[in-house]
Simulated scan of single mutants.
Amino acid sequence: MTQNAMTPAQCRAARAILKWSMARLAKKSGISSRTIYLFEGSVDGSTGIRDTTISILIETFRIAGVTFVRDDDSVSVRLAANPAHEDPARQASFVFTAAIGGVSAA
């Protein structure tokens, strides 16, 4: 897992702040509930989940208005006052290409 990647705790917190179930995150991201379950259940994210899978989850949360902050002393999750999905001025068109395991701008 890359240094700037989301931690399992941040993933759980992001779902909580959005009031999303694992099933809802799975549907929105195209990542299986089982993969999300395995990632969130790990202490440090060392489940063998690909960085591209984590990137898709991060992008899914970003579109919903969540940002992740990680520094030497803490990790945190923030929700934007005007998430991209609610503010047309901030929207970007993204296509999740789950079949090839990546995210690309459309």
Rank of each mutant, 00 (worst) to 15 (best):
D51T: 11
F68M: 09
V43H: 11
I36G: 01
G45Y: 10
F94E: 00
D87G: 01
V69M: 09
V43T: 08
S55M: 15
E59A: 08
S93M: 04
T47W: 03
V77D: 01
G102W: 00
T53W: 05
D44L: 12
V77W: 06
T67E: 11
T67N: 09
S55F: 09
A81P: 00
I49P: 06
I49M: 15
I100Q: 15
V103S: 05
A81W: 00
I100P: 09
R70N: 15
F61R: 02
T67M: 10
E40L: 02
A98H: 00
G65I: 04
S33F: 07
T52Y: 02
A80S: 04
V69L: 11
G48Y: 06
A81M: 03
A105P: 12
D87K: 03
I58L: 06
I58F: 03
A89G: 13
S55Q: 14
S33E: 15
L38F: 00
G101K: 03
A80L: 07
P83D: 00
A80E: 05
I58T: 12
I49K: 05
A98P: 09
E86V: 00
R62H: 06
S104R: 14
V69F: 11
V77E: 04
D87H: 01
T97W: 07
D71L: 05
E86C: 08
A89M: 13
S74N: 14
S76L: 12
L79V: 02
I54T: 14
D71Q: 10
L57F: 08
F96G: 10
A99L: 09
T97F: 15
S104T: 13
F94W: 10
V103E: 13
V69K: 09
D73W: 09
F61H: 11
I58V: 14
G102I: 13
Y37F: 11
S76C: 12
F96R: 10
T67K: 05
R62C: 01
H85G: 04
L79G: 07
S93H: 11
N82W: 05
A106G: 13
A64E: 15
T52Q: 10
V66S: 03
S74Y: 10
S74G: 08
S74F: 06
D51C: 01
S93G: 11
V75W: 14
L57K: 07
I63T: 01
T35D: 05
R78Y: 14
V75K: 01
H85C: 07
R50S: 15
S55Y: 08
R34D: 13
I100S: 13
V69D: 13
A98I: 12
I56Y: 02
D51N: 12
L79M: 00
P88C: 01
L79Q: 04
S74I: 02
G101H: 09
T47A: 01
D73A: 08
A99P: 07
E40K: 06
T60M: 02
D51P: 04
R90E: 01
L57G: 10
D71N: 15
V95E: 14
L79K: 14
V103D: 13
R34P: 03
A106Q: 14
R70P: 09
S74R: 11
